[in-house]
């Protein structure tokens, strides 16, 4: 696993400590603490996990174990424009995989990763309830329907400035 070194600011450390304190620094509240912290930071880098481990008096290995077990937790910051490709049944049969491949090719990242400039992150989801528009792509809150591999570069272009 690759790591981007994060220098935590004093206020950030204080924020994490506050979150831990709001759960009485109880080891049993680890998952709740992680939820709150991710809500506040957007992701859970190693340095954040270390602070949590120290505050709750559990090993860092344990915290990392929980973070990597639940797919909701992430150690990678989301991009400025998070891209989600629906790979639900309807989108899948109408060619979502080819669309996904095109995003991967152009952005040069894998699913779950973020571009080095922090602009785009790529993820998959299952069904946004717009099967009539399959295959569907979401960028942030905006929904794109009937996306073809050829249309991918235009979508990306919209956000490149």
């Amino acid at each position: 696993m690759s790591h981007i070194k994060v220098e935590l600011k004093k206020e950030q450390v204080a924020k994490i400590k506050d979150i831990c304190k709001s759960f009485n620094n109880e080891a049993g509240e680890l998952i709740n603490v992680l939820h709150k912290t991710q809500e506040s930071f957007g992701y859970l880098p190693a340095e954040v996990q270390e602070v949590i481990a120290r505050e709750l008096n559990v090993s860092v290995a344990k915290v990392y174990g929980v973070v990597t077990f639940y797919s909701f937790f992430t150690m990678i910051p989301k991009g400025k424009h998070p891209i989600s490709i629906c790979t639900g049944t309807a989108c899948y049969v109408r060619g979502a995989e080819k669309v996904l491949d095109e995003f991967k090719r152009i952005l040069d990242v894998k699913v779950g990763e973020t571009t080095p400039d922090g602009k785009f992150s790529l993820s998959c989801l299952r069904c946004v309830g717009a099967c009539g528009l399959a295959p569907v792509v979401m960028v942030g809150e905006k929904v794109y329907g009937r996306v073809s591999p050829d249309g991918v570069k235009d979508i990306i272009k919209e956000y490149e400035q």
Binding site: V58, S59, V60, A61, K62, Y64, G65, T68, F69
Partner: peptide, 10 residues
Amino acid sequence: TVGALSGVNR
């Protein structure tokens, strides 16, 4: 109580 090891990933 060394805490060097934990089950990780799934």
